[in-house]
Amino acid sequence: MLMTQLKSKETIESLVAGKKVFILNCLGCKEIYFPEKEANELQKELSASGDVTGILTTDYVCNPDNLKLRLSKYQAEIDAADVVLVFSCGVGMQTVADYLENKRVYTACDTYPMPGFQGVTPLEYDCGQCGECYLNLTGGICPITACSKSLVNGQCGGSKDGKCEVDSNMECGWERIYRRLEKLGRLDAMKCPTQIRNYATDDETK
């Protein structure tokens, strides 16, 4: 089971400041605790300050076929937006970022693990449930699960022909991230401050 929490209001506002935003909520999974009330309030505020091109509340965005179908009716609203802001777990976010690969897609949430069944997880994406989602710095590709060393500050020297040294069937996650950021014109994200993971799990030290 997962638990999704909103990032801080300041963080979310800084992601969308001065930009036209399309908002995507995923309420699919019973296994995920989703902060529906808080998300609604925040989205009302964002709508009131203008620049929200549309809000879609749907389910199972982690299923690529379902996602495609749901988004197809909102193409104009998505085209009009600079940023797509996703309220979902890390798997949903990665599916959206991959499908809208030319769009800046940001997550408004951090995903934490809870004991028990993990919920619907398709084959291609995996969420490490690290509770400090990096997807906004990495073009929507998770460095925790897509890099065999779970590096958070860029690629190591171990990729050959785009493949990971540890597993030749696996693409280098950071090379994918770099290419995605390049395509999005977001290579400035590589210049972010040094990232240091926080493995503390209790709220006091997180």
Partner: peptide
């Protein structure tokens, strides 16, 4: 992927 290596070097 020397461009990605340079980005890491800068970090």
């Amino acid at each position: 992927s020397v461009d990605a290596q340079l980005a890491k070097m800068e970090r």
